[in-house]
Simulated scan of single mutants.
Amino acid sequence: MPTPARANRAYRRVAAVVRPVLFATTRRDWQGVENLPREGGFIVAANHVTQADPLTLAHFLWDNGVVPRILAKASLFTAPVIGAALRGTGQIPVQRNSSAAGQSLDAGAQAVRDGECVVVFPEGTLTREPDMWPMQGKTGVARLALTTRAPVIPVAQWGAHHLLARYGKVPHLFPRAHVEVLAGPPVVLDDLYDRPMDSATLREATERVMEAITRLLEGIRGEQAPAVRFVPPPGGRGGATSTPSAS
């Protein structure tokens, strides 16, 4: 399989280490590849169940000729080994809950304008929904989408939690985890482009993205998501309220 054209030397080195491990520890089902744009920058928005999700999603994109630049929490960029890999491959640090958070969106927007694929996990953290359905998203993905007017490709993935459990620290390498990744068609947002970028517009755009991801995940799981979307309490894992979703 040819190396994606936009991959730099550091990215190729990381891929040479990580991909064989994933080949050995997962069984992969890549779907919806035809929905990935072949020209111009775009945004991938995906659900987030386990810390292994960025690896399996990057594997899916890389295998299909796309070099992802992932918005990831800034603390990872100073961690031993992984920090060097993130910096070398051009991932984008996110300063959560600070005035610098907007800088990551600026960097993401510039990457999209430069023709890159920028990956966002709109929930901002692992889902707190008890059955691991997508919870309420944060509005960063909406800001990025409405600022750049680039296609937003919703992606649902399922199965990486068998490789590394939600909140888990030790991977389960055997038996191999069956990982399914499904990319859908772009989320319709063009009717929002000329509206004021206020909280109502951002929330509507965000919910459209989360709804698209949820519908894709229903198809993978063969189940119906809850009729209301889980809303996590500040700083907690449970005991949340909920808001309606378009089921």
Rank of each mutant, 00 (worst) to 15 (best):
R9P: 07
A10I: 06
A16Q: 11
A16V: 03
V18Q: 07
P20L: 15
V21W: 07
L22T: 13
L22E: 05
F23P: 10
F23M: 15
R27I: 13
R28L: 15
G32E: 06
G32Q: 10
V33F: 02
N35A: 15
L36T: 02
P37W: 06
P37S: 11
E39W: 08
G40H: 09
G41V: 02
G41A: 10
F42H: 08
F42P: 04
A45R: 01
A45D: 00
N47P: 05
H48Q: 04
T50S: 15
Q51K: 09
Q51I: 02
A52D: 04
D53V: 05
L55H: 01
L55N: 00
T56S: 06
T56L: 08
T56F: 12
F60G: 06
L61V: 13
V66Q: 02
V67S: 05
V67F: 10
P68M: 08
L71C: 04
K73S: 10
S75T: 03
L76Q: 02
L76R: 05
F77I: 07
T78W: 10
T78C: 13
A79R: 15
P80L: 13
V81Q: 06
I82D: 11
I82M: 15
I82P: 01
A84S: 12
A84P: 00
A84M: 13
A85M: 14
L86N: 03
R87P: 06
P93N: 11
R96S: 06
S98F: 07
S98Q: 10
S99T: 01
A100L: 13
A100H: 08
A101G: 00
G102T: 05
Q103A: 07
S104C: 03
